Computed example of a mutant assay.
Amino acid sequence: MSTRSTSPDGGVVFVVCCCLHLPQLFSTCVAFSLVADMGFWRGAIGNWSMSLWCVCFAMTLLISIVELCRADSEFPFFWCNISVTYACYAALICLSASIIYSITYVQFVPYGPYRDRAIAATAFSCIAFVLYVIEVAGMRAWYDLEEIFFYEHTMSALLKVLETFVAGVIFAFLSNTSLYLHQPALEWCVAVYSICFILAAVVLLLDLAEWKYMLSRTFSIFQLVLSLLSVLLYISALVLWPLYQFSEEFGGQPQRSSDGDCRDELTHDMCTWDQRLAVAVLTAINLLVYVADLGYWAHQVSVGTEDQPRVS
């Protein structure tokens, strides 16, 4: 493997900051500024979206400062994994904020200046999403991955990012404790989401530190066992959550119209029935991701190999 530095030179860092980080900062700043200017019209969904754009703005600014000051050269391998991981999360955050804000809020705002601001904020959020995707895709060229290996470009890393991100969105809906505190079975589902999130986050942190190469075979088996456990847990949640939320026999509400909180007019928030449905859909999506993760690690263990650093 080549021994040259993995950190790009100052010129490349300057170009990246000007061509990607500055537009990212501008897009996220405009997005949350437009929503913040809507006052009481922004509602709970607007506050949630605004907080996500603020986080992306703050983290992008911090990463830009570190890279411009060349502080990342002190820990190049770890920093590159961290920076591309953040870019993946930021892309997912902006995408989810754009989708959720538009379908649960923007379409219900009356025509006028507030609606125009909401539409503009969604547009800038979409632009930020595209810019973060370009950063993730371009990281391979910037860090010359033909010679240097980075964990975050493997399929396993992308699956772990998706698992933790989808779980994070689920937790956002579960902030409404009335969704589950009345049923032990639903509390079990919340425990499933929490346990699987913690396991995925721990594995992701271990991989970021490149621990997987100390005992690669053992680590693969460890990942396989965790993936199997997570799949089984999510299957139980996928059965229990819809059953107790939408079946009248178990105290659920099968029809949206039966929920008094759900109205056609703007309520500045998702009604309870919609939140239940969103958690059910996200549970199914995350189960599919965990199944893909299980299949990946089953293949790695069966063939005795996994993504390894490429040698020039």
Rank of each mutant, 00 (worst) to 15 (best):
T6S: 08
S7E: 11
V12H: 02
C18N: 11
H21T: 13
S27N: 13
C29R: 06
R42V: 13
R42F: 04
A44I: 15
I45H: 02
I45M: 10
N47R: 07
S51A: 14
C54N: 08
C56F: 06
F57S: 08
M59A: 10
T60E: 05
T60C: 09
T60P: 02
L61Y: 07
I63C: 09
I63E: 03
S64C: 10
A71G: 11
A71M: 13
S73I: 13
F75H: 10
F77V: 15
F78V: 13
W79F: 10
N81T: 03
N81V: 01
Y86T: 09
C88G: 12
C88F: 15
Y89P: 07
Y89M: 12
C94D: 07
S98K: 00
S98V: 09
I99G: 04
T104C: 10
V109N: 00
Y114R: 06
D116A: 10
A118T: 02
A120I: 07
F124Q: 01
F124C: 08
C126P: 00
A128P: 01
F129R: 05
F129H: 03
V136P: 04
A141V: 15
Y143P: 00
L145D: 14
F149H: 12
T154V: 10
S156L: 06
S156A: 15
V161C: 05
A167F: 08
G168M: 04
V169S: 05
F171Q: 02
A172G: 14
A172Y: 03
L174V: 01
S178R: 11
C189R: 00
V190H: 08
V190R: 11
Y193E: 05
S194M: 05
V202H: 01
D207L: 02
M214L: 15
S216K: 04
F219C: 11
S220T: 11
F222Q: 06
L224H: 00
L228E: 07
L228G: 09
L232G: 06
L233V: 02
Y234W: 08
I235H: 02
L243D: 07
G251Y: 05
P254M: 06
D261H: 03
R263H: 14
E265F: 08
Q275R: 07
N286W: 00
L288G: 09
L288H: 01
L294S: 00
Y296P: 04
A298H: 04
V303M: 03
E306T: 12
D307N: 10
